[in-house]
Design a protein around this nucleic acid. Structure first.
Length: 491
RNA sequence: GCCGCCUUAGCUCAGUUGGUUAGAGCGCUAGAUUGUGGAUCUAGAGGUCCUCGGUUCGAGCCCGAGAGGUGGUACCA
């Protein structure tokens, strides 16, 4: 089976499904731990649900037999039921809450983190498999529930390592936009959707692009035409007045006052009073104006949002390998969805929540040049000769028992490659026990950190070798203490 | 999905008007150094020039189709 006919698969990960090395994992884990702690401090309990859900539980985007994989990764179970990998953590929560509603303490407050999957085009900071970290309150319609979610999100951003000014939470209410559209006679759902999509593109296209999308439509640089909402001039003018107000920078209270001058109808009034209550709660929780702003131009694509919506935007500037600016967009979002649980129970259950894009945040922090602490390798015990292998493993066990990561080199190479290996693993030190040491009952310890520090100044190989910097031979009984001294010096 | 650009060694890329055996840097392996990381020097391994078809005496180079990648756009629960 070794002839030319043998099939050899290409070794490659599927597009959008990147492997994560130790440093990536450490970065993501640090974010998850930090954010989870914040959620727990606010009284949210942990919940884990499974990766698969029955497709109908995932909402209106359930796959049909013609396009079973549009947006999600789906498959049919033995009983022909469609199952799909979850695309977020909110839909599974709604299913869980509906399934266990009778027995849950209400309002039900839970947080969750886990992998989600989306079958869509990949981009920078945009994967088909990624990690989210969510917190939601199910069963409270109070604006304070929204405010608390916002406060946690702001604290979470800080806990994840973003300093003030590096990220901001933008808050809006769907009711404002709905009220505005109703007042301007935007009636049909299709038209509303087009208007919302257009407004969502404001930061990218500017008003000129948005205006075209509200009217007849827009031809983009690639020659593709996007059909517009077909609104009349007066309606477009009213929307522009709203956007002008919305995109001006000002404190939350001032923004509310400015919006009160626009005619947003009864629904808009309701939205404004929600936002006022949220603002008041944020103030009493000590959430600063810089950390959370009112931005009535925030839309969020999700159709299921019914009230307040939130979006976390990264303000750090990020560049790719070629030094070009990269837009990461939002690194988290959420809002109030009062209809999601009712899909299952028929009973209206108000809910609100926020989701951190952990993978995107980690990848953005990396792109922003945020250095991660280099991961230390283990102490490497040089495998010098075969007879002594039991000795080497005894040394490894001794170090491990003392809580020091250690390993015996398991390859068959000579000493030089072993030292290279230890260097590449960022090992703090190597343990050398050859014939001389064995005869004398000693060990030789080579401080690799010290060598790394000195190596830059050394130009001549002979003296470098002769000096053997950082190397010491000592009685074997002193091994653990000496290794620990090297580790402590490296801290 | 639509539009543009790209595809040559593990990585980044060069490759003349179409002309014999396709190159460089980095990386990798080995040696100089029988028991020692860096630098240097020496040697070595590594290629269906994305695929298929066409034009030509002759294609990495020209033409066509396809695949993959990438950027924009659309969609994004």
């Amino acid at each position: 089976m070794t002839d030319d006919q043998t099939f050899r698969p290409e070794a490659r990960a599927p597009k959008g499904f990147g492997d994560r090395r130790a440093s990536d994992l450490a970065a993501e884990r640090a974010i998850i731990d930090a954010v989870s702690k914040v959620y727990e401090r606010y009284g949210f309990e942990a919940l884990s649900t499974s990766a698969f859900e029955y497709a109908d539980a995932l909402g209106k985007f359930l796959p049909d037999s013609e396009r079973p994989n549009a947006g999600v990764f789906a498959l049919q179970d033995d009983d022909e039921q469609w199952m799909a990998l979850r695309y977020d953590l909110t839909a599974p929560l709604a299913r869980f809450a509906a399934e266990n509603w009778q027995t849950l303490p209400k309002p039900f407050r839970r947080y969750a983190f886990g992998t989600v999957w989306r079958n869509e085009k990949v981009g920078p900071g945009r994967f088909r498999e990624f990690t989210q970290c969510d917190a939601d309150t199910v069963g409270s319609a109070r604006p304070e529930a929204d405010a608390e979610i916002i406060a946690m999100a702001a604290e979470g951003l800080a806990a994840a390592g973003l300093n003030p000014g590096q990220a901001v939470l933008k808050i809006n209410s769907r009711k404002l936009l709905d009220g505005l559209m109703a007042a301007q006679g935007v009636g049909s759902d299709v038209q509303k959707l087009i208007v919302l999509r257009a407004l969502d593109k404001f930061d990218r296209l500017g008003w000129e692009g948005v205006r075209l999308l509200l009217g007849e439509g827009r031809l983009d640089e690639s020659g593709d035409f996007t059909k517009g909402a077909g609104l009349k001039g007066a309606a477009i003018d009213a929307i522009k007045a709203f956007m002008d107000t919305a995109s001006a920078e000002r404190p939350r209270g001032d923004m509310l006052n400015a919006l009160a001058n626009l005619s947003l109808g009864a629904l808009g009034e309701e939205g404004l009073s929600d936002l006022a209550a949220i603002d008041a709660a944020l103030k009493s929780m000590g959430v600063s104006e810089g950390a959370a702003k009112l931005d009535p131009s925030v839309v969020r694509g999700l159709e299921y949002y019914t009230g307040a919506v939130f979006e976390a935007e990264l303000l750090l500037s990020t560049t790719d390998e070629k030094g070009q600016q990269v837009r990461f967009g939002s690194i988290g979002g959420g809002g109030r969805y009062d209809g999601l649980v009712a899909r299952f129970t028929g009973e209206a259950v108000p809910a609100t929540g926020f989701s951190f894009g952990v993978s995107r945040l980690a990848s953005a922090l990396r792109a922003a040049g945020r250095e991660q602490a280099a991961l230390r390798g283990p102490v490497v015990i040089i495998a010098f000769d075969n007879e002594a292998m039991p000795d080497y493993f005894a040394v490894a066990a001794e170090l491990r028992a003392a809580g020091i990561p250690a390993e015996v080199y398991l390859g068959t190479s000579g000493m030089r490659p072993q030292m290279k290996y230890a260097d590449r693993r960022l090992s703090p030190c190597a343990v050398i026990i050859g014939e001389d040491e064995r005869a004398a009952g000693t060990v030789t310890l080579k401080d690799l950190d010290l060598g790394r520090a000195l190596a830059e100044g050394v130009k001549d190989s002979e003296t470098w070798r002769a000096e053997r910097p950082g190397q010491q031979t000592l009685p074997r009984t002193q091994l653990v203490a000496a290794v620990r001294a090297i580790l402590d010096a490296g801290k």
